[in-house]
């Protein structure tokens, strides 16, 4: 049997309205391996959130399927935790209440004390110790999103699905939360699928960046492998890494030009949605191709 990733997206398409309507996206094929941090990047309106909702089981595709753990998903599951863009905390519950709600949904037989102990562990993990009894309205945007992260992690899911989780935050808070997500995911070897339109966020967090073209009829153009090892990615000196600009330029070039004109590109070069190109722009920067001989070796 061939290798199948933990999440396998197979031939996904989504139309709103009847079959005569153009698809928002079509023929989407990609996979996410266990322990991998995968970012989907693309412009607004290309159907990123719809793909995430299909993965979450909140929406169903018009065509194709998503296979998780060798089973086709047919609805939401506690194995796939979602971190929503707008944090989606229940405003009448405290921080503890919000997380306990998730924990007791996962383990209905647990008593109150056990649920709260477990919830408290995850409140501590995201650095919200002392804020257990606050309501969401009393928290800052960053703290709310931390609660959302703690809620998702507390049910110990097989994978995390994040829909632009940091886009509503200010730059400083965003950076701090990115670092924490990176740390937590590394500690727990969590599989993550995240949507973003922030190139630097993708380079910092992702092992693999899936590039999506503009809709309607959006496609996956290619997959960029982040060849910068996780332990070399630090927010403060990311820009000093030798591979950084090569990857960044590749992504920006895609978002600015190629995402719009991808249909022309494939008309010339060919395209198989099931066998996407794996691009490693970072390696080209550190190991220049053999034919480009550096000047100092020429003499």
């Amino acid at each position: 049997m061939e290798h199948r990733p933990l999440i396998s997206v197979e031939g996904l398409a989504r139309r709103f309205g009847d079959a005569s309507q153009p698809a928002v996206f079509e023929d989407i094929w990609f996979g996410v391996d266990k322990g991998e941090f995968c970012c989907l990047i693309g412009h607004s309106g290309c159907g990123k959130t719809t793909i995430l909702n299909v993965l979450a089981g909140l929406d169903s595709p018009s065509e194709g399927a998503v296979i998780v753990d060798n089973r086709e998903i047919d609805g939401p599951s506690l194995d796939r935790a979602v971190i929503f863009q707008g944090h989606a905390l229940l405003p009448w519950l405290t921080v503890m209440g919000n997380i306990s709600f998730a924990v007791s949904s996962r383990w209905p037989s647990w008593d109150r004390a056990k649920v709260q102990d477990h919830a408290r562990r995850f409140i501590d993990l995201v650095g919200l110790k002392g804020a257990e009894n606050k309501r969401p309205a009393q928290l800052s945007g960053g703290m709310k999103q931390r609660v959302g992260i703690a809620r998702a992690l507390s049910i110990q899911p097989k994978m995390l699905l994040m829909d632009e989780p940091f886009s509503a935050l200010d730059a400083l808070t965003r950076g701090m939360l990115q670092d924490e997500v990176l740390r937590i995911c590394a500690d727990t070897n969590q599989t993550v699928f995240m949507i973003t339109h922030d190139v630097d966020e993708a380079i910092l967090l992702a092992d693999k960046i899936v590039l999506m073209t503009n809709g309607p009829g959006a496609k996956i153009a290619e997959i960029v492998v982040n060849t910068m090892p996780r332990n070399e990615r630090h927010r403060n000196d990311l820009h000093k890494h030798p591979q950084y600009y090569a990857i960044r330029n590749h992504l920006v070039e895609f978002l600015v030009n190629r995402s719009r004109a991808f249909d022309q590109e494939i008309a010339e070069a060919g395209y198989d949605p099931r066998r996407l190109k794996l691009v490693k722009p970072g390696l080209a920067a550190v190991n220049p191709p053999a034919e480009v001989v550096p000047l100092r070796h020429s003499s």
Binding site: A56, G57, L58, G75, P76, S77, L78, R80, A81, V82, F84, G86, A88, L90, F101, A102, S105, R106, I155
Partner: peptide, 14 residues
């Protein structure tokens, strides 16, 4: 009721 709150319940299989 906000759709996102219902979605929270759905993803938690409530």
């Amino acid at each position: 009721v906000r759709k996102e709150w219902l979605n929270v319940a759905r993803t938690l299989e409530v």
